[in-house]
Design a binder for these strands. Structure first.
Lengths: 238, 238
DNA sequence: GAAGCTTTGTGTCCGGCGGACACATTGCGT
DNA sequence: ACGCAATGTGTCCGCCGGACACAAAGCTTC
């Protein structure tokens, strides 16, 4: 629970795409380091990303990396900023808030799906970059014209991005293995059954859900959230 | 992304409250270890929990701990299992699914609030214990009698527990500092303003939200989710 | 072209981490 | 009193992030 202010050098994070003229072809650059790290994280998970490992992939000693990033925390922050990509502009989409936010959610989910380590890496105390904030800005813009208050819009966006994070986290790791018995270890299913009727609601629900789409509740949750927002918006309009 | 099956010794986790007769007064016990670890995590965050640190708090060498827990992963698993506590029984609550699930959510949130490290500790690949499963069972029982399918019930519970996790995670760390400008570092607010109208929706929303309750969208999200579920249930009943 | 200076990468070292393993100690049953 | 199993200790290993002094290149300026 350290103060976020302790983290070093937010400068690089926020100046990422405003680098000055000098463009000399350097053997080692921030981009190469970040991309190497993202490659490792995509393939082997964020916990496989160590300075040594990244350096080895670039045929360089780990201390060389510190000439370009000031700490591992900064490296991870820039990894996240790079992985989430440029936020989309959904303001041109017609039909009101709903198609706009649906499109936004679809794009965000697609982006996060490419980098299964994002839910883990973005949990906890950390610095946040402009692109990440840009995604929030983009989502908030979808609610322009609705009767929702500022606080409500923020909460709505938080709710939606949280849902994306949760479903992606569950996909990346076996966070809720009971949601999909096919993925659950036989051991666990066995344990459940061994406890008799203590878990009868789970067992019957899982039994009933054998043909459900393996999306960790993404579509279901999104629909429920949007329905809930729709109800509030209609109520406030009346 | 290691296979969960790699983790050692699920035996202890699942036998936690079925320990046999032999109850000799031992200096060092699993309970003392786990409680010491939880104390540290509650006070200083989960990242402060190392085997050395726990051992020091018990005036013992770290290797002594390994006589009682087989690995740090197991210790953390039992910490979680202990921290979440016994799941509640909400089946006796009258008035249908809604008061039952509301009560469940309230209890779960209260429990998680006592241990701000739970969101972090329960993210990623890990083993899950019977109590944690029991909370899911408890939530699922609230939907007994509704027209929701098994898959829908599971998704609904996942959606709700995800919301609790998200709001708690945001409370424990500065995950979404823009949600509450009072907590945001002045530096960040300054950066936002410095970008002109690039973040105008955020700035105006935050400006408008200065008197919002600092619950990270808990009440708002819960209401929206329940409204969304209500709509689906009514629709399926018709 | 030589001298200096800055930039970039290297080598070494540190404390802390999780954990394997051999050893010391203790206490209980015989 | 003996032996044995349970419990705690000490030492060692490889890995982690990172501080710091040093080497090797350029580039600038005479």
């Amino acid at each position: 629970m350290t103060d976020t202010g302790d983290q070093k050098n937010l400068g690089l994070l926020w100046a990422l795409h405003a680098r000055p003229t000098r463009e000399a072809r350097l053997v080692l650059t921030v981009d190469r380091i970040v991309n190497a790290a993202i490659d490792i994280a995509d393939g082997e998970g964020i916990e496989a990303v160590s300075m040594q490992r990244v350096a080895a992939n670039l045929d360089v000693t780990k201390m060389a990396l510190y000439r370009h990033v000031s700490s591992k925390a900064e490296l991870v922050a820039v990894m996240i900023e790079t992985a989430v990509g440029e936020p989309p502009d959904v303001t041109h989409i017609r039909g009101g808030w709903r198609p706009r936010i649906e499109r936004w959610a679809e794009l965000m989910r697609a982006t996060w799906q490419k980098h299964p380590w994002l839910p883990t890496a973005t949990t906890g105390d950390r610095a946040i970059g402009p692109r990440e904030i840009g995604w929030t800005e983009s989502a908030l813009s979808a609610f322009a014209g609705t009767p929702l208050s500022g606080a409500e819009r923020i909460d709505a966006v938080f709710l939606l991005s949280g849902h994306i994070r949760n479903t992606q986290a569950a996909a990346g790791a076996g966070t809720q293995p009971w949601t999909d018995e096919r993925r659950a270890r036989p051991e666990l299913a066995e344990l459940l059954r061994g406890h008799g009727d203590r878990f009868r609601h789970i067992l019957s629900a899982v039994n009933d859900a054998h043909d459900a789409p393996p999306d960790n509740g993404w579509a279901f949750g999104l629909d429920r959230i949007l329905a809930g927002l729709d109800q509030l918006i209609k109520e406030k309009r009346a």
